[in-house]
Simulated scan of single mutants.
Amino acid sequence: MSSIYVFDGHNDAVQFMVDYKSTGRDFMVRSEMGHLDLPRAREGRLAGGLFAMHASPEHEPVDDLTITRDGYEVRYADAVHPDYARGQIDGQLSAMRGLIERSNGQIRLATSVNDIRTAQMDAAFAVVLHIEGAEAIGPDFGYLDALYDAGLRSLGIVWSRPNIFGYGVPFAYPRSPDTGPGLTDLGKSLVKRCNALGIMIDVSHLNERGFWDVAALSTAPLVATHACAHALCPSTRNLTDRQLDAIRDTDGVIGLNLAVNDVRPDGHLEDDTPLDLVVRHIDYLITRIGADRVALGSDFDGAVVPRQIKEASGMPHLIDAMRKNEFDELTLRKFAYDNWLRVFGLTWR
């Protein structure tokens, strides 16, 4: 099995933590539920990751999935009220702080590349705070500044719903990511403010026009923390070759999303997806944009992942599958760990 350490570009674990909701799981204790906790992270040689804070819908959607002749469409998610979103983000931030405190040094908040490297050398798990969907941030950006002071270093402008900053992509297959308007004027101002603070901007969940708005404005490398190639799986959540080329040209990074419906050419939500399909996707991305610009963005606790991986403890299976497909050790280390730290170093202040 692999001895390579992994830094993961995206997970939704905070949504399921007992620190956030009393019915949740204890991140410090190994569970058979979900994908990620500290024991399973250690078994899978995960050294840390971006932990996404996200406001769930105020009302769970009913009958939002439509099966089409050749795929699926999910009804565009409703916008959420900023006050409602802020309450959830405050709760998740408090939960992460509480978890870090009670871990007695086993888990550390990281706000710099040096923090991540030091944690890894000390056998501690590094948490980088990310927000997925900026609904909680008001038009004056005061809450953004407060989140930055609290440790936020990565931001996705939208989830797959509209907000005052822009428009996400509704989930659909097969379909282009060009699904509507791009960033609003406030969204463009948010890009500039994130650049000024040194917060990494995540283009995952943005529609194509929003992507190009970020590309035109941002002074930082383009980053998608969890996405795949549209050429191999024509899901709205995946990036076209032209978008991938823009990531390459800005020396950015794409985190390979393990969500099976965004990996499989047929878009099916089936966990028996073979690792060969995942490796094929990685190979396509590396061939297109280079080994320095492709990393891991698992979407643990937010997606259905291949059964051979199953959970965080199964990450060595993917590394070994890449090795069997003749990826050299330098490329493996870049994909698993180094590429995230490289782009953080180009973005954070």
Score class of each variant (00 low, 15 high):
I282G: 12
Y84H: 06
G44M: 09
E135L: 05
G255D: 09
T273V: 13
R293W: 01
R97P: 01
A126M: 11
H10E: 06
R288H: 13
D63F: 07
A13G: 02
L38H: 03
D90V: 05
R248W: 01
L186V: 01
G142K: 10
Q308G: 02
P139T: 14
H205I: 10
D185Y: 01
A123P: 04
D266M: 12
V6G: 03
M322S: 06
V74M: 11
P39E: 07
L46T: 06
L222R: 13
D64I: 08
R342E: 05
D90A: 14
T347S: 15
R45I: 00
S154T: 12
T111S: 13
S218I: 04
M28N: 07
L186Y: 03
E60D: 03
T66F: 03
K192W: 00
G198C: 11
I289F: 06
C233P: 06
A123M: 09
R349A: 06
G314M: 05
I247P: 13
F300K: 13
T236D: 10
I282T: 12
P221T: 05
L197P: 05
T347C: 11
D90R: 15
E270H: 13
R69H: 09
R209M: 05
G252C: 08
R288L: 06
P274E: 04
E329F: 01
E208Y: 05
D12L: 06
G98L: 08
V203Q: 02
A124L: 02
H205P: 12
D78L: 11
E311I: 00
V14Q: 07
M200I: 05
D320T: 15
A47Q: 02
G71V: 11
H268A: 15
I247W: 05
K324N: 15
V158E: 04
I164H: 06
D245A: 14
C194W: 01
G98S: 15
V74E: 13
N104L: 03
T219P: 03
N163A: 07
G71C: 09
D338W: 04
D213Y: 02
V294D: 05
M28F: 00
D8I: 08
I201M: 11
I319G: 10
S94H: 12
A119I: 03
R175V: 00
M315L: 15
A85W: 01
G182F: 02
I107F: 02
P57A: 10
S22C: 01
Q88H: 10
K324Y: 00
R30V: 03
A123V: 04
E73I: 13
I157C: 12
F27P: 13
G182A: 05
R323W: 00
P170W: 01
M28T: 11
H205D: 06
L244M: 14
L109C: 02
H10A: 08
V253P: 13
L46Q: 13
F51S: 11
R42P: 07
A231T: 11
D149C: 06
V203K: 02
I4N: 08
R45Y: 01
E135P: 14
W348S: 07
W159C: 09
A52H: 08
I201F: 02
D63Q: 13
G24D: 10
A246P: 10
A196I: 00
